[in-house]
Simulated assay, not measured.
Amino acid sequence: MSRAPEPFTADDYQARMDRAARTAADAGLAGLLVAPGPDLVWLTGYQPPAATERLTALVLVPGQDPVLVVPALEAPDAARSAGAPALTLRDWTDGNDPYAATASLLGTSGRFGISDNAWALHLLRIQSTLPDTSYVSLTEALPMLRAVKDAAELERLAAAGAAADATYEEIKKVPFAGRREIDLAGDLADLLRRFGHSQVDFTVVGSGPNGANPHHEAGERVIERGDMVVLDFGGLMHGYGSDTSRTVHVGEPGVAEQRVHDIVREAQEAGVRAVRPGVACQEVDRVARAVIADAGYGDFFIHRTGHGIGVTTHEPPYMIEGEEQPLVPGMCFSVEPGIYLPGRFGVRIEDIVTVTGDGGRRLNDTAREMAIVH
């Protein structure tokens, strides 16, 4: 198990909030409203109670100190968060109007970015209080806000990747044949936690024909000898994500299965080789997709080649046709081409890759050749 990294400091969170405010201004926004969720955690270190329905919002307006509007009964927890020294807390009590308090921080007009997972109830009440304001989702307005990771974030992502690798090495040792998919999924979850994950987000086990569904939920199907099995698993460790996929075979594979696996492995390698600063995200998708299309399986690669990863396991940037955002050192994302043959089997191989000064570096190091399990 890796050592715990040094915690982020108030200065780290202050720098993030300052950068977010500057980025908002550069995008022509009057400011940002950040509701509970991954953006708030990344900017302040504060994670409110999951069940709260009370308005909580970070207000970032260029040229003003950041303010966290928070229910009074939750203010003590907010005051203990790592980013609290960089924040002004404005609490409100039940029976008072939190929307007026929030609106007073925004001015009377302007276009604001708002985090994607904000409650519609809260947004509509603020907008009714300030009818001359308008709002755009943070992902639409500032898609790259969290995309470029600093050294401390990369350390956490590398540790999460190493834990996922250790999980894969161990899962290959357990019996597959004669067990249900959900049994293997439980093993994967237990191993991720054993190797340091605090949160398990997904454990895909797609055996035989179920592997042709990229997001198959592990079920009651009993894995048989002769099955191809797609394994895709990940979660959060030290607040940052892991996500890796490998495809194994129960016993010796057939010629067609081996060929499809080899094609996906070649496509994945091509996608990783394409990673370097200045290359458009869509180029990674194009390069990997071309390998599969040239082999005659283009119609069976049915999803994007990759997604960003950080404090969530899916976030911008996306490796997909039409995404012209250039790669920048510090970006982290998956490269995960696949082939899915309905009624037969599927194959996917996935690594997390970070952009370096002159190329890309994998954060997953397990073998990509097809593993034989029992």
Rank of each mutant, 00 (worst) to 15 (best):
A100Q: 01
F301L: 10
Y46T: 08
E323Q: 14
H216T: 04
R225S: 14
E321T: 10
E257M: 08
G338T: 06
S115H: 12
N213D: 15
L87P: 02
D165K: 05
G251K: 03
T312R: 11
G298P: 02
G110C: 03
L58M: 07
V205P: 01
M370G: 13
Y318P: 04
A371T: 13
L327I: 08
T139I: 14
H374P: 15
W119D: 15
F233W: 13
S134V: 05
R221T: 15
P38Y: 13
L55A: 02
H249G: 12
P329I: 04
S198L: 11
A185F: 07
T354S: 02
P131D: 05
P316C: 04
D12C: 01
I302E: 07
D285P: 04
G251S: 07
V311N: 14
A21R: 07
R344D: 15
D299T: 08
E269D: 14
D190K: 15
Q14I: 05
T313A: 13
R286V: 01
M370F: 14
A162E: 14
I349F: 11
G211M: 05
R265E: 06
V148I: 11
V69G: 01
T56N: 05
R54C: 03
Q325W: 13
V373C: 08
Q127G: 00
V205S: 00
D351S: 14
R362M: 07
G113Q: 03
R3W: 12
C281V: 10
L142T: 05
G226S: 09
A10E: 02
L33V: 11
A274N: 05
V355W: 12
V230P: 02
M370Q: 15
R3T: 15
D201S: 11
L60N: 13
E181A: 08
S207M: 00
E155I: 09
R125D: 00
V34K: 06
A27S: 08
L154M: 09
P5G: 09
